[in-house]
Design a protein around this nucleic acid. Structure first.
Lengths: 233, 233
DNA sequence: CGGGAACAAAAAGTCAGATTTATTTGTCAC
DNA sequence: GTGACAAATAAATCTGACTTTTTGTTCCCG
């Protein structure tokens, strides 16, 4: 799970990062590197490396004679995948899931439109394969199989858009979809309408119909937003 | 300019970061911390802190017995404001500007629609003020004044959307707009149609007309994309 | 009594050297 | 050729001393 098992400073981040993003320290709180080093039983060098990383995420600011001060939430690099993961693991996961889903609803339709123009024939094939996989796992509580193909589908769309910024949102979408399946209630099989829409998007991209691909993807994301409204209105 | 003047490791990053994002080292290149420390005339401790930061940006990966290996471009955290700044300062600035503008064209219309529902009356006033400022600076080569109000306008829209992820794109939009004004050719006064659109968006938000605000903002971003196509087709 | 300058303390920042650990690579025997 | 074992290598870690900057206090003079 923790992608950052490498090195002692990674272990420190695995516990200190979530503590900060969870709001454990109110903005302006001061931490002292020496105390932190003692608490985590690591040397100051290691602790300093960890602080530098948190500083690059704009979670904290280190100043001489003062200490390591926690920055307010509005300063955080909320697009950092690590920060996203920490926050999704925290208490206000629902709020994160919502703001990320809104971001998806803005980006994915445009990405799908671009994918219809830029996708290679190989990517079109992948897309169709993913959609078929979703259909095959749409009944009988095969949620994990469904999730796998769903994530792959949206990754391909984002990558095929040809836009680097869109492509890098693949991990974010994966986290959101995984969160929806695992944490939130999803006892029943996925909505058949959503499955159909994915198949149709694959069709539209294959047929180079950008306008249709965008419109259908917008329907998917609208559905995702409605799902959130139902769960937490 | 360099926000990271603090500390020696910041100075190292200011030169090593741009070198990497500019493609100075092909993916897979190995750097050794000792050599880097010698080159920058800093201690290994400082060099290690710098490497940790680059590692958190997924620009490099540090492995025992191997060294610090440069990661391929597709791994980079391209949403990190620091990385964005480094890349915009580099050689393929036009490509960055394009992909960022496409991102804008996806996000800003949705943000404007949300702003129409969520904006406080204070934010509505700010919006109107910005639009008026743009009008006032739209003639007579007052480009700097125009840019200032343009940036402020889009910042308010993104902030007023109420979505945290959108709000944090304010800096990105500012960089893109500044880049368009300063670096690319913009001898003439801004397009009068664009100025009018901004005024109308402010109107739509004030009147809580989400659909109209979104549509008008989409026209603005379409214009921005066309501008890029004219400059670098 | 008030304001400014000098001083002292605190915490991050920096450095150099010793030590540890993991990974790769080469070698040797089976 | 394959397996295990050994050596080399470079990052990872720890430690302790020293430096720098900021902040707060004190003390002196107006």
């Amino acid at each position: 799970m923790s992608t950052r098992g490498r090195g002692l400073h990674g272990h420190v981040l695995d516990t200190l990062g979530p503590e900060i993003t969870a709001g454990g320290y109110p903005p302006g709180s001061v931490l002292r590197t020496d105390e932190l080093a003692q608490r985590f039983e690591v040397s100051r060098s290691v602790m300093r490396e960890a602080v530098r990383v948190l500083e690059s995420m704009h979670l904290v600011e280190s100043r001489r004679r003062v200490g390591v001060t926690v920055l307010p939430e509005c300063e955080w690099n909320v697009y950092d995948p690590q920060v996203i993961r920490w926050r999704l693991a925290g208490a206000d996961r629902p709020r994160q899931l919502r703001s990320l889903t809104v971001l998806r609803s803005a980006v994915e339709p445009v990405a799908a439109g671009l994918a219809a123009t830029h996708a290679t024939s190989e990517q079109c094939a992948e897309l169709t394969e993913c959609a078929l996989g979703m259909v095959a796992n749409s009944r009988g509580h095969k949620l994990e199989g469904y999730l796998f193909h769903d994530v792959a589908f949206h990754r391909v769309i984002l990558a095929a858009s040809g836009n680097e910024m869109f492509a890098r949102l693949g991990d974010v979408v994966a986290e959101v979809l995984a969160g929806r399946t695992h944490h939130d209630v999803m006892f029943e099989d996925p909505d058949p309408a959503a499955v159909t829409l994915h198949v149709q998007v694959a069709e539209a991209v294959r047929e180079r119909d950008a306008e249709r691909a965008e419109r259908l993807t917008r329907e998917i994301t609208v559905g995702a937003l409605q799902e959130l409204d139902i769960l937490a209105p």
